[in-house]
């Protein structure tokens, strides 16, 4: 990639939009999963009995089980959300950038 092209893409508004929206989206989702996971792990380290609370007053299933399963499901959902948005919105922007370059 030559210098000229680099400068041109850098100034391309679609490119700027792509980098900005994608970075902030990726960072937000990363923080979300990290916060959820580390809260889970630190609860186990500091206050494991919290997760032992029974789900129903007369049952044995602890709330730790649906919480743990939810972390797994959340990880899957977040990858789905990111993939969906990236494969449409971000790829459309990328293609627009590519087409602009080809036109000149």
């Amino acid at each position: 990639m030559n210098k000229e092209l680099v400068e041109k893409i850098k100034l391309n508004p679609d490119y700027q939009k792509l980098v900005k929206t994608r970075s902030s989206f990726a960072i937000k989702l990363s923080i979300l999963i990290l916060v959820v996971y580390f809260s889970f792990i630190l609860t186990i380290a500091f206050n494991p009995t919290l997760l032992a609370t029974p789900l129903f007053s007369d049952g044995v299933t602890s709330i730790g089980i649906p919480i743990g399963i939810s972390v797994i499901v959340l990880a899957f959902i977040l990858t789905g959300i990111y993939t969906r948005r990236a494969n449409h919105e971000f790829d459309d922007l990328t293609n627009k950038i590519k087409n602009t370059i080809k036109e000149d």
């Binding site: 990639m1 680099v6 893409i9 850098k10 490119y15 792509l18 980098v19 994608r22 990328t94 950038i97 590519k98 370059i101």
Partner: peptide, 8 residues
């Protein structure tokens, strides 16, 4: 730029 767009 390449890492973000795949150009090249």
């Amino acid at each position: 730029i390449r890492s973000q767009t795949g150009i090249g």
